[in-house]
Design a protein around this nucleic acid. Structure first.
Length: 427
RNA sequence: GUGGGCGUAGUGUAGUGGUUAACACGUCAGGUUGUGGCCCUGAAGAUCGUGGGUUCGAUCCCCACCGUCCACCCCA
């Protein structure tokens, strides 16, 4: 038999309660901050990601699902969301909208990776992007949005790390200093980190190797290389976040000069929310400013900032914290009927559904088995249609929870009776 | 891409170099005439991940592959 491709998953009905909870929360919070939904294609021109994400990144070099279509074009299943949103921004003339343009997405991403907990080949992200405004107030807004999202999900015990990667022209001298610094210790660095020293010196900062971490503690900090403009931006952001601290008692952040990003397009502000006792793949939200990106993609220089949040990781954390999520829509009734009453039962089901009652017709089994069936489905009521009811043109309604007695109502009042009972149960 | 653990019915587990591979939950059917949940009885359901090899004989030993989990890498 077939099996699902490696690193993919079936999201079964039982798990959908988590997904609904997360998606609904994301939509609600996004709306509250004035972010509107955008959906972009599942695949894009390969070149968009090569240029946007960065040719040197692992994502582009070995993790993309790229293919050539019948017309000979090279396309790629999107590995991340920001490049597409920026492409859509330029392509659809969003420069002519009031700036910044605030958008969010809920969408699957694809990366050819070795699967493990919290890491899949197809995963889903809630992402937000604010494009067209370079001021630090937007940075603070995005971070507040991420905070509100986690709080509204009822997740606690998370930390927010913050850093500034400076602007590209400031980063060159910084990276040189950083390389120089680590080169002094080349003899002590483990093999993986020697490779990083060549390829991506920034990555040395968040290495998991003990030695490297120790050496990295005193490494040059990007924060010390900010130019006047990015320094002012940083100061404003810190000021705004301190303001948030006084508004939300649980809000906090800490500056971490080791926080870096794997995608090339980031500049200035970068941040991550992660569980306090984060394991390997813990990061729940990661984002930052990407002012150079749209120009890199061939558009007009346009600043932007946003974050991505892995829904699977959020759900892992919801489960880890044993957070209860709203249960699925309940089934109002199962109709139990035998013999001649079955066709009347089918008609009743149809009529109930058009009256907004959720109803299932029990399968053609013994009376007892049908009652069991109703119980297994967790229906609030059983509606019994038998010979007696047929003769009286009525139906018996039996509440399945608690021990209220069953009662009989005329057939045309079943819908009213069921919905009244349902509405009465709401708080 | 690297290293390690694991792979027995739908799910969770037990088990043995040699006749019909066990248990629990779940599923289905019964427990008399139209009433679920508890309980009782019964049934279905596993080519013991796949393919090689060792052996008279392998689910059990060895190898490869696949899958899964963990760590690295990378990242959400």
């Amino acid at each position: 038999m077939f099996r699902k491709p490696r690193g993919t998953q079936d999201i079964l009905p039982d798990d959908q309660t988590y997904w609904n909870y997360v998606r609904n929360t994301a939509e609600t919070v996004a709306a509250r901050f004035g972010y509107a939904r955008i959906d972009t294609p599942l695949f894009e021109s390969t070149d968009l990601f090569q240029r946007g994400v960065g040719d040197e990144t692992d994502i582009v070099q070995k993790e993309m699902y790229s293919f050539e279509d019948n017309g000979g074009d090279s396309l790629t299943l999107r590995p991340e969301g920001t490049a597409s949103v920026c492409r859509a921004y330029v392509e659809n003339g969003m420069q002519n909208l009031p700036q910044p343009v605030r958008q969010f997405y809920l969408a699957p991403m694809f990366r050819y990776e070795r699967p493990q907990a919290g890491r899949l080949r197809q995963h889903n992200q809630f992402g937000v992007e604010a494009i067209g405004d370079a001021s630090a107030t937007v940075d603070a807004e995005i971070i507040e949005l991420g905070f509100s999202y986690l709080k509204r999900l009822d997740i606690s015990d998370f930390t927010l790390r913050l850093n500034s990667l400076a602007d590209p022209n400031e980063r060159e001298p910084y990276l040189a200093k950083l390389s120089d610094y680590f080169s002094q210790y080349a003899g002590e660095l483990p093999k993986v980190d020697l490779a990083r020293l060549e390829r991506a010196p920034l990555r040395l900062l968040d290495s998991k190797e003990q030695v490297t971490r120790k050496i990295g503690a005193d490494a040059p900090k990007s924060l010390d290389y900010l130019g006047a403009a990015s320094q002012e931006h940083w100061d404003q952001l810190v000021d705004l976040l301190d303001g948030l601290k006084t508004t939300f008692s649980e809000f906090d952040y800490h500056v971490d000069h080791r926080l870096v990003r794997g995608l090339d397009y980031y500049n200035r502000t970068v941040f991550e929310f992660e569980p306090r006792d984060a394991g390997g793949q813990g990061t729940m939200i990661a984002g930052g400013r990407y002012d150079p990106l749209i120009e890199i993609l061939g558009g007009p220089a346009t600043p932007g900032i946003g974050f991505g949040s892995g829904i699977e990781r959020i759900i892992l954390e919801l489960k880890a914290q044993e957070i209860s999520v709203p249960s699925a829509d309940q089934l109002d009734a199962v109709i139990v009927s035998v013999g001649a009453a079955r066709s009347a039962a089918a008609r009743l089901a149809t009529s109930l559904r058009s009256n907004a009652v959720a109803v299932v017709l029990a399968p053609e089994r013994s009376f007892k088995a049908q009652m069991r069936y109703a119980n297994q489905l967790g229906a609030v009521h059983t509606v019994i249609l038998g010979e007696r009811e047929m003769a009286a043109n009525s139906a018996t309604i039996k509440p399945m929870q608690g021990d209220s007695p069953q009662f009989e109502v005329p057939l045309d009042e079943v819908a009213r009776s069921l919905s009244a009972s349902r509405d009465g149960q709401l708080p």
